[in-house]
Amino acid sequence: MAADILLDVVNLGKSYGDFAVLKGVSFSLRRGERVALIGPSGSGKSTCLRAINYLDPPTQGEVRLDGQVIGRRSDGRRMSDLELAPQRAEIGMVFQHFHLWPHLCVRSNVALQPRKVRGLSHDEAAKLADELLAKVQLGHKADEMPHRLSGGQQQRVAIARALAQQPKLLLFDEPTSALDPELVGEVLTVIKELAGEGRAMVLVTHEIAFAREVADRIIFMDGGRIVEEGPAQSVLDDPQAPRLKQFLTSLAQRERGDG
């Protein structure tokens, strides 16, 4: 069973001075498994996600990917960004605000990692980029500059960029929160497709229906802790914790109000 574990998050915590945003979060992810982190804003779910690849280094606890401790040397000291680089290369990350590089064309955005980190030749990297762009339905935009694309297209490029790493794990940090409502669907479709391929993912999302569809398990966080977790179906349809019930009710009300 242990060999099946891809990601192990153990007692992860993050404090700014006296203020703790993350208070001892533990969960693990099997190979090919998808976990969605949901919860109200300020619940610590994004911090938790960003602690996994040490973009927001945790102040307590441990992250292990494939048995290897992320971000800490064997003596327990924090790694420098230079030492972290090869570990981060194995974890793809998709950001809320895409963070495409505006001075590079779409193809170069995707080809940069294989070229500069994994040492592929210019042609190999370009070919891989074109394949991945075709996969996210943007093969025809390879030569465009990012600012000429819609938000949904930019986010799909960002997903292709993460895939180009050939990562063991994909992290999605509210990938549709910055999008106009009519552009959300195209991004979710791509992510669902990736889920269908059995890629391991941790998703932070506000889209409950999407979480239900894509995630094997759902973790509900509040106040920097895990309040409830379990199979997507049971967490969403049969919530136990009062806080989760309240959260789901307010989301449902808001959706009805909007609709």
Partner: peptide, 26 residues
């Protein structure tokens, strides 16, 4: 913007490569 450096770090660029390829040109 700080997200530029974050994206560069997240794909596994070393700090020097991130500076040269992402921060410097912009």
């Amino acid at each position: 913007p700080s997200g530029q450096a974050e994206a560069a770090a997240s794909i596994g660029l070393t700090p020097l490569a991130a500076f040269r390829l992402i921060i410097l040109p912009q």
